[in-house]
């Protein structure tokens, strides 16, 4: 189940190069955090790993297989964002079941498994709710369950807690770290909050200030 994610000499950016020569290796079940000021390309790096934004150079490997040219949906790389981005026309259960349905499960199977994933994030009994009746924290938990339900090889987290208030943020960050460890899912967590990064991750890297420089390890 658990997988390794590697980036080799990656160049990223929207059309023009924002950063290049980025290399990264995330071991199975390892949580790596990447910190850096806003605009440094953290989010773009994640988007390029997932394939949402095409890489401008270099390679992305999942379990040693070069997936750089693969479309997003084949990479098995899950992603959650700052906002939950729940699908507003689906209820909580169908949101979580979305990825399972794409794996070919029928609605009943997917729904059943979604209930399980909701239990991971502490939202038993929420499956039939419309998503607009969730609080911000609950919505982000649903997004997490949705991303993890289809068992991705790697989960990418793009500042998922920054829109929440401080107390909620800490609690949710701890829950997420627990969950990732329990499910032994490799993860890359991008944040501008060094404390949050340190609390969750096995390893913290810093985005390079200039293009062409490597990701540097932040000592603990």
């Amino acid at each position: 189940m658990t997988s390794r994610l590697e980036a080799i000499d990656l160049a990223i950016g929207h059309g023009t190069v924002l950063a290049d020569g980025l290399s990264l290796s995330v071991a199975p079940a390892e949580i790596v955090a990447i910190v850096g000021p806003s605009g440094s390309g953290k989010s773009t790096l994640l988007a390029s790993l997932a394939g949402v934004v095409p890489a401008l150079g270099g390679h992305v490997l999942v379990d040693g297989i070069d997936v750089t040219a693969w479309p997003v949906h084949r990479r098995r790389i899950g992603m959650i964002f700052q906002e939950p981005l729940l699908f507003p026309h689906l209820d909580v259960g169908d949101n979580v079941a979305y990825g399972l349905r794409r794996l070919g499960q029928n609605r009943r199977e997917a729904r059943a498994q979604a209930l399980e994933a909701l239990a991971w994030v502490g939202l038993d009994g929420y499956a039939d709710r419309p998503v607009e009746r969730l609080s911000g924290g609950q919505a982000q938990r649903v997004a997490l369950a949705r991303a993890l339900a289809p068992r991705p090889a790697v989960l990418l987290l793009d500042e998922p807690f920054s829109a929440l208030d401080a107390e909620l943020r800490q609690r949710l960050a701890a829950d997420v770290a627990d969950l990732l460890r329990r499910e032994a899912t490799a993860a890359v967590h991008v944040t501008h909050d060094l404390d949050e990064a340190a609390a969750m991750a096995d390893r913290v890297l810093r985005m390079p200030p200039e293009p062409g420089q490597p990701l540097a390890r932040v000592p603990r």
Partner: peptide, 18 residues
Amino acid sequence: HDDRHEAVARTLGAIRWT
């Protein structure tokens, strides 16, 4: 419309059309 919704759907295994 926030098109990151589609990005999410794609990471969940949906092809573009889906």
